[in-house]
Amino acid sequence: MKALINNPQDVVVEVLEGFARANSDLVSLYKDPNWVGRAAPRQGVAVVSGGGSGHEPLHAGFVGDGMLDAAVPGPMFTSPTPDAVLAAIEGADNGAGVVCIVKNYTGDVLNFEMAAELAEASGHEVRSVLVADDVAVEDSTFTAGRRGVAGTLLVEKVAGAVAASGGSLDEVEAAANAMAESVRSMGLALRGCTLPHVGEPGFELSDQEVELGVGIHGEPGRSRVDMASADELTDQLMDAILADKPLDAGDAVILLVNGMGATPGYQLDIVFRRVAQRLDDAGIVIARNLVGNYVTSLDMEGVSITIAKADENVLALWDAPVHTPAWRKGC
């Protein structure tokens, strides 16, 4: 593995130090346990998220006005422990309660749940919203359920927007839940990712292979398919997403074309072009879109597509100002 790192064991802390320094106008880093809060605290319902590290800029990159009040970065690809989540909840809560946005992995779910119980025991009101948008995984009683992937960004955005507008705990929770219900994602990898302390990629792909339905932790995907053109690969993702959540002509959507960490922007534009063609053909309206490396898997090369149906209310939440290290608009 070739990467701009120092001691592999120090990656998480050094990334946080660099990140916090570069964005000291927006965020403050707390250590032992690690969490990231806003440089300037605010009133109202707090939105907290977190999970294993390695998905940068998610989550800490979205701490700031209009989005998260705190993020809890765990070890690489490993859920943060309840004490860290608890510290973030306690730090972010200013009396109006906290909504935790949790990606659906057993470790994340359990650690956030424990933290919530501990927080409640000391007087914090905590709600949890699960994100499980990955259509690559069967949603059935035979699994721990779908994984939470890039759709998390959309859930964090709407929750943060409602909180920023002075929404109540119920309202923030409801908006986040509604987005979590409607959003769907699927991704693929051209190259697997390498955990710094492991040094070998989670899976190896030949030049002729693509991992379809890949997870954001270098988990193998739904199937291994032949390398094909950007348009053909994009079609495979779109087919799966649209089959899972049929959309009607005239529906408006928010679209995220997301790189997996080492995907050059020019390739994302090519994928976006094809997604737009597909949605145009189906009469589906791209009301808003975002193209970039937002929810990543270290140095994975690949792309995921996230689509959420959006009415006027949701679009207004999407358009609300946001000022965070990784995403800024309207201010």
């Binding site: 765990g74 490993t78 309840p82 057993t106 470790g107």
Partner: peptide, 12 residues
């Protein structure tokens, strides 16, 4: 255990 084990087993 909760603060050191992490993952699924820690909270359990």
């Amino acid at each position: 255990l909760m603060s050191k084990v992490g993952g699924a087993a820690g909270p359990l």
